[in-house]
Design a protein around this nucleic acid. Sequence first.
DNA 1: ATGGTTGTTGGACAA
Length: 260
Amino acid sequence: MPVLATWNVNSIRARLPLVLEWTGRVRPDVLLFQEIKTEASGFPDMEFRSLGYQSLVVGQKSYNGVALLSRLPIHPVMTSLPGDEADAQARYIEADVAGIRVIGLYLPNGNPIGAEKFAYKLAWMDRLIARAKTLLAEGVPFLMAGDFNVIPTDDDVYDPKAFASDALTQEETRRKWRALLNLGLYDAFSLSHPDARRAWTFWDYQAGAWPRDLGLRIDFFLLSPRLVDRLQDCGIDREPRALEKASDHTPVWCRLEDGQ
DNA sequence: ATGGTTGTTGGACAA
């Protein structure tokens, strides 16, 4: 019954004590980090190794950066999203762990809309859809997890009007999100908690968003059909968001039945 | 409230 978790840590070095405490206590089998904000050479490998984790890091100085940690052997597959050789941003990691193709991603924010950052976001989503199509055609059981920077519906944001001109709510963004799911992927949290409300995964640092519980649901586990059959539970752990020096995101976890 | 906060970095820029 492997447990996987995803967490946008907003700098692994600034967050290290908090993240190590959580990891050592929860002990997920696989852990996906986003926004580690460091090159691989600056990633605290040893601290996680002492907790029993191997690591695979796709780093970048100052911005972005993703990592995959695991207590089981990691078999790397890709360290960038196919479809644009010129894209140097560290936002994608793909590896086989325990017979599952595990993909960790930090989808571009895309603000402000109508400029090149938004075009990059939409193109990145097209590339992600293409990757999912390939994996489905190959019949590989896989999951995509991370910070998707998409607010799929107005129920996934505390105030839709306040985000009407935000890249995360644009109809083009939502259409591509639906196109991805309509390939046959499933949002594990929604399956496990169909009646959940205000199940935020992110609260801005500003304007008392956390104490007022004004958040967004933008971190997800998407499962391929063969993994949906193994889904036991999926949850959002709000506790780390309440701590001093918290990330603005909180971990999302997913428990699967053992495979054959 | 065209503000507010945090992180990287040592001035903007990203979120």
